[in-house]
């Protein structure tokens, strides 16, 4: 299987509540909370697209977009 290549961390700042679950469980320490306590990808080059942040986000606020997979229409507008 070809390795997934990161395109973007799609983060919905309106929905993110800054709980820090994604930051805590990221195995590569890619994510951080900013001054407004919203998540952002501080080191996107280290991301291995494991999606552990995406599947554990209680607010459906983070999505990993890879090169092969395009964002859903809803995801883009969110």
């Amino acid at each position: 299987m070809a390795k997934a290549k990161l395109k973007e961390h799609l983060i919905n700042r309106e929905w993110c509540k800054g709980c820090g679950i994604c930051v805590h469980f990221c195995p590569k320490n890619v994510l951080e909370l900013d001054a407004q306590e919203k998540v952002f990808a501080a080191r996107p080059e280290d991301c291995i697209c494991c999606r552990l942040c995406e599947i554990r986000c209680p607010d459906l606020a983070i999505e990993i977009l890879t090169e092969k997979q395009e964002a859903s229409e809803n995801g883009k507008s969110a």
Partner: peptide, 14 residues
């Protein structure tokens, strides 16, 4: 209806 009403970090969202 989003963002939902659950507290930050609430397991129900997961």
């Amino acid at each position: 209806f989003f963002p939902h009403l659950w507290c930050p970090g609430c397991g129900h969202g997961i």
